[in-house]
Design a protein around this nucleic acid. Structure first.
Lengths: 201, 201
DNA sequence: TTCATTCAGAGAACGTGTTCACTTAATAAA
DNA sequence: TTTATTAAGTGAACACGTTCTCTGAATGAA
C-alpha cells in the first residue's frame, strides 16, 4: 500500500521489459547470438521494434541483463553449497564444477555470455566484477582456514593465491569454449584440478 | 625461374590483397573495430567494395590476418631474446613483458585482437593455438632447467606448471583490458610477478 | 590470330542493428 | 471536466556487413 500509487504506466513498462527479456532469453538459448535478431525478439513478444530500444540501449545489453541474472543465481548457489570439513582443494573444485555445470548445460547461451565479455557496457562489467570480487574474498577465507590446518603453505598470501587459482579456473573455462568444446563438467573439473595442484603444491 | 610463369593475374591479386591489409591495418590502429567500415577500407585503398570479399570472407578475417602477423613477430622476438643465466622467474617475466609492451603500445589494435578471440574462424584459432603450444613447450624447458638448479620444486610437472603460469599471464592481460586499461607494461609485469610468485613458491 | 573460358574487380541489393519522428495513452494542471 | 504534458510504443529510414550478379581483362585452345 505504501507503493507510490502503482502507476499504471510503470507497471505496464516493467511488464513489457520482462516480456522482452523472456523472449530474448528464449531465443539466445536456442540460437547463436548473431542468429538472434531484434526483429525476432520483437515478433516473439508481439512488440514493436522501436519499443525494445525504449528498454534496452542495444542488443548486447539484453544479453548482459540475462547474464547478470544467471551469474547472481550461480554465485548464490555455489557459495551456499561449499562443503565444510573437506580439503581446500576439493572445496575449490566443487565450487568450480557447479559453474562448469551451468556453462556446459547451457552451452550456446554461455558461449554468448563469455565471448562478449569484452563488449559489455562498463556498467555491466562492474556488476560482473563485483561478483568476482566477492567470490575471491570467499576463496581467500577458505585458503586461510586451510593454512590453519596446515594443508596450504602459510607463507603464501591468501588473497593473491585466490586470484592465481581463479586465473586457472578462467583458463580452463576459456580453453573449453575456445578449443575443446568440452561439454562434460567432470572433465573440466579434472583438468582444473591438475592445474591447481601445481599452484598449491 | 621454376615459378609457374609468375602469372600477371596472381601478381596483381597478391598486390591487391596486400593493399587491402595495409589499409585495414591502418584503420584498425586508429579506430575502434566497429568504427572501421569495409567501405572505409575500400575507399582508403581505392578498391571496390566487392573486391575485398574476393580476398577475405569477412571483416573479422582481415583482423585475424593482421593478428597472426603480429603474433608471429612477437613470439619470434620474445623467444629469441630470453636472457640466459637468470632465474626462471625473471626469464618468464621478461618474456611476458615483451608481450605486454606490444599490447600496451598498440592499445586499440590489441583490444580488437584480443576481444575477438572467440569469434575467429577455426583456421585462425588453430594458428594462434599453435603459437601458444610452442610457447608452452619453451616455458616447460626453462622450468626443467630451473628444476635442475634447484630454483623450482622438482616434484612439479614442468608442462602443467607452464600452463598454470600462462593462465596467470592471460589473467593479467585480460584484466588489464577488461577493467584497468593499464598502459604501462612494467605495471602489468609487476602484477604478473606477484601472481606467479604464489604459483612457484 | 581468334575465340571461349576463367576469375579479379565492382557496386547494387538485402537483412541487420540502431536512430528518429511520430502517435497515443496515461498523468498532471487548469 | 478539460486541457497540456509527458513518455511508452511504433515502424520507416539509415548505415553497416555481406551476397549477388555483372563486367572486362587475362589466359588457354583453336
Amino acid at each position: 500500500m505504501e507503493q507510490p500509487k502503482a502507476n499504471r504506466r510503470e507497471v505496464q513498462k516493467s511488464e513489457t521489459r520482462a516480456l522482452i527479456l523472456k523472449s530474448a532469453r528464449k531465443l539466445f538459448e536456442t540460437l547463436d547470438y548473431d542468429k538472434v535478431t531484434i526483429r525476432g525478439v520483437a515478433a516473439l513478444g508481439r512488440i514493436g521494434l522501436g519499443t525494445i530500444y525504449k528498454h534496452f540501449p542495444n542488443k548486447l545489453s539484453m544479453l548482459a541483463a540475462a547474464f547478470s541474472d544467471d551469474l547472481k543465481n550461480m554465485y548464490q548457489d555455489a557459495l551456499a553449497t561449499v562443503p565444510d570439513n573437506q580439503s581446500f582443494q576439493s572445496q575449490f573444485v566443487h565450487i568450480s564444477k557447479r559453474f562448469f555445470s551451468f556453462y556446459t548445460s547451457h552451452y550456446s547461451l554461455s558461449r554468448a555470455y563469455l565471448s562478449h565479455l569484452f563488449f559489455y557496457e562498463q556498467e555491466w562489467i562492474d556488476e560482473i566484477n563485483a561478483f568476482d570480487d566477492r567470490y575471491a574474498q570467499k576463496i581467500a577465507e577458505l585458503i586461510r582456514a586451510a593454512q590453519d590446518t596446515g594443508e596450504i603453505n602459510p607463507a603464501k598470501d591468501s588473497h593473491i593465491l585466490a586470484l592465481a587459482l581463479m586465473s586457472n579456473y578462467f583458463f580452463v573455462l576459456a580453453n573449453s569454449f575456445l578449443l575443446d568444446k568440452i561439454t562434460d563438467p567432470d572433465q573440466l573439473a579434472t583438468r582444473l584440478e591438475t592445474l591447481i595442484e601445481q599452484t598449491l603444491l
